[in-house]
Amino acid sequence: MTVPTAPVEEEEKKPEKGWPPTETKLGIIAAVLGIIMTILPFMPSFVKAIGLTFVLVWGADSVRKTSRYGLGTGVPSIGVLAVGYGVIGAIAGMGIAKVGGDFTIGGVEVLNVGVLGGVAIAALIGYISGIFSNSEKFISMKIPGLERGMTELGVAGTLAFLLESSMVAGTLKLDAVLEDVFLSGAIAFMFVMSAIGMFHPFNACLGPDEDRGRTLLLSFEISGLICIILGIVSIALGAEWLGSSSLGLLNAALLILYGIVVWVVFYAKFVRRSFEASYEVVGTGLIKTVK
């Protein structure tokens, strides 16, 4: 009689060169990158898209660290909360910037610091709602770190909206953004896709075998999809870069290219890591199994 041997415990895999970074490190990198890309609206769209990618990954990480304790309402709720605060913070920030004035050289908006006021307000709203949600006297969710998570989500949502608006409109002037983003209806797409970029990774990957590095790859992939569609939107709207329409098409084309590269690379990475984590991959015969 053969005694079944216990499965050999596989050694803990070493994370790929510093990936994933710690939560604080990722937050600082994403916030700094996002803020730099936001306050310099003259940069081409695909450079801003790098900021957008990191901001969405940060948001997804914040969703992960707040909702792994169980929110009771499902993971999507906190992602939608982030874009709710984000859209309010973004229009407030652009309003402050309009009053404060901007640095314009030759009709090109070079520096826009006023929008950071909106980011600060969104952070404040996030922090206060975090306090209310965690406090014993009010909603009493008792989730450790919820205040920090909601603050980060407010900032990430606002930065995501500001970056997407400036990618499509080429500027952060409130009336130009209202005309290009709100009138065209692109705002509805941004509202939904920014939320998906933040909540979908953890919502899809949660479970006992959830792995932070793998979950966050999914967020990269969604940001690629957002960039592809925003590129198409920019072409349809007649994209502007540096105020000259001659560079507009190239700007949008580079954004689409960036989106496709990010999407393909991170999709392949995600699938490979899922295969690596699985016990065995068995093809159904319908699709060729990649191993």
């Binding site: 709720s77 874009v83 709710g84 949600s133 705002i187 509805a188």
Partner: peptide, 17 residues
């Protein structure tokens, strides 16, 4: 969009409650 943003924020806080 602004009304929808404010609405979801309130709806979600109540949902947590």
């Amino acid at each position: 969009i602004a009304a929808a943003g404010i609405f979801v924020a309130n709806a979600i806080l109540s949902a947590y409650n």
